[in-house]
């Protein structure tokens, strides 16, 4: 069984990444690669759906910190959605809700981009 999976789907100019499993120091590079390839394709409107993510450590949060600035400089954003309470608690502990757009549902994030 794969420890971590990231699946990408696109709705016109908006890319949605569904992440699944454990996002830790071992698997974070996989998400990093995926976001980097979106940037290379100049796709800066990104929604990350956390509904199937069961675990996150600071290495996972670091991925979002590494990309948010260049993405916002290109009039884009990384919007985070569908977090379970366990995952949200880690983001909250580090003060992310004041700096990142964290929404209940993927559809909410897509609507905000449109």
């Amino acid at each position: 069984m794969a420890l971590f999976e990231v699946n990408r789907k696109e709705d016109s100019e908006i890319a949605v990444l569904n992440i699944k499993g454990y996002l830790d120091a071992h698997t974070a590079p996989k998400l990093e690669e995926e976001i980097q390839s979106l940037m290379n394709e100049q796709k800066y409107k990104i929604v990350v759906n956390f509904s199937e993510l069961t675990y996150i450590s600071s290495a996972g949060l670091g991925v979002f910190m590494g990309f948010i600035e260049p993405i916002r400089e290109n009039a884009g954003d990384i919007k985070l959605t569908n977090m379970t309470p366990k995952i949200f608690r880690v983001f909250d502990l580090l003060g992310f809700p004041s700096l990142y757009d964290i929404l209940d549902l993927e559809e909410d994030a897509i609507a905000k981009f449109k």
Binding site: S58, G62, M65, G95, F96, S98, L99
Partner: peptide, 11 residues
């Protein structure tokens, strides 16, 4: 820390 968007060091 977050305002500076520093990567890592959160552990």
């Amino acid at each position: 820390y977050l305002a500076q968007m520093r990567v890592g060091g959160l552990g």
